[in-house]
Design a protein around this nucleic acid. Sequence first.
DNA 1: CGAACTGTTGAGAGGCTTCAAGCCTAGTGG
DNA 2: CCACTAGGCTTGAAGCCTCTCAACAGTTCG
Lengths: 229, 229
Amino acid sequence: MNRPTEHETDLSGFQLFNKLTEEEFGRLNFDKTCSVYKKSTVIYREGSRLTGFYCVTRGIVKIFKTGIDGKEQIIRFAKRGEIIAYRSLLSQELACTTAKVIDEAVLCHVPYQTLLFLIQSNWQFSHHMLQIVCKELREANDYITDIAQKTVRERLAEVLLLLKENFELDNQNTLQISLTREELANMVGTATESVIRLLSEFKQDKLIELQGRKIKYLDIANLQRVANI
Amino acid sequence: MNRPTEHETDLSGFQLFNKLTEEEFGRLNFDKTCSVYKKSTVIYREGSRLTGFYCVTRGIVKIFKTGIDGKEQIIRFAKRGEIIAYRSLLSQELACTTAKVIDEAVLCHVPYQTLLFLIQSNWQFSHHMLQIVCKELREANDYITDIAQKTVRERLAEVLLLLKENFELDNQNTLQISLTREELANMVGTATESVIRLLSEFKQDKLIELQGRKIKYLDIANLQRVANI
DNA sequence: CGAACTGTTGAGAGGCTTCAAGCCTAGTGG
DNA sequence: CCACTAGGCTTGAAGCCTCTCAACAGTTCG
């Protein structure tokens, strides 16, 4: 396993840490451990005890819960600049989600003790942290409403738009995150076959173009209409 | 509108405040404003600007989002000891839910400035706050998984069990919170008619007994089986 | 080259929603 | 005191959206 680059161990770009004193930031850097994780590596598993949280500095991590019959429900994807595992850590519970690498990633592990130190030492850090959790909570509540009230078709369109907002597009309007049909289904909360059928309908309707797992956006306005936003 | 009783303005029972110094608690008490709210009163509405958060010291408040065609999605109910409106406040966003009284309530309004003061002044307060939000986030994530993967029948059974955990039962095992069929539907994320049909099936199966809006639990073990927990 | 996984398409079944009609209860005003 | 109205509750019927099962094509990888 190769070592992370300098840039990939640098946490100074994280909003969360931008109000730390030099001393606090020093302690953070001293305590952290950064490693490269290959695709498909499980960072932590549902039910395991966490020793700290992770800062994502490269790659993409999928966060999901295991439901009925082992079916995954994807909660979110974390990319550079985001943190994972903090929720269960702060609650001092066992992990209630699993985190799996889907694009080779670099993660910096920050021990629980360090987190506690920062909370005690710097109110602005706590405040930032509160805002991060609150944002995630709003998104979760929004998603509950969607999933409870919208059709699968609407939800899929919305998920596509969400992906567009959260991940890079190349200059051809093609999404740079590569998901399987099953993963899309596990975001939307539906069957894989339904996703396949709907995607090809979207393609027929000239909303998107498909090439394997690559999704190219052709008509965002109408996609929003389908999503019923 | 009558005045709240002494007991109804007392915030010392709130976990959230139990690490405050005498001085901080004094400031909280000085800044707060407690009032009685009649059934059906809207405390705040989606899209409105919040000036503080509220501590519930009596009654029950329904928190919901308005989705497609004005259909409510109930996010949670808040009762004595819980706080509401804090999420949007901390994010400094407009309210993304509406709060409506369903059982005559007493709420104590705490201004945003006081919240900020407490966050700055007492790290244990921030830490408590973080734990509250994290707990709610876990519940939201759990609910997403349920709603995405379970049938309406399973979800209704689960909601009934959830209500049993969160609200009082009398000595006859009858739930002391009174909800309309529509409200149950808006928790489960289904049509009112479906709730009605399923409730009478549960009744036929001797899982519950119904008397108007009163729900009496007869066979919790089997209700859990139906909920697929 | 086979194994394993992913993607695709079709058919059939069934869970839920929607629409419609009627009942019941509680609160209101004459 | 009683008819009246409104809102909640209930039931039935029709239909559709979505899931499941099954078969098969394509891809990747050891």
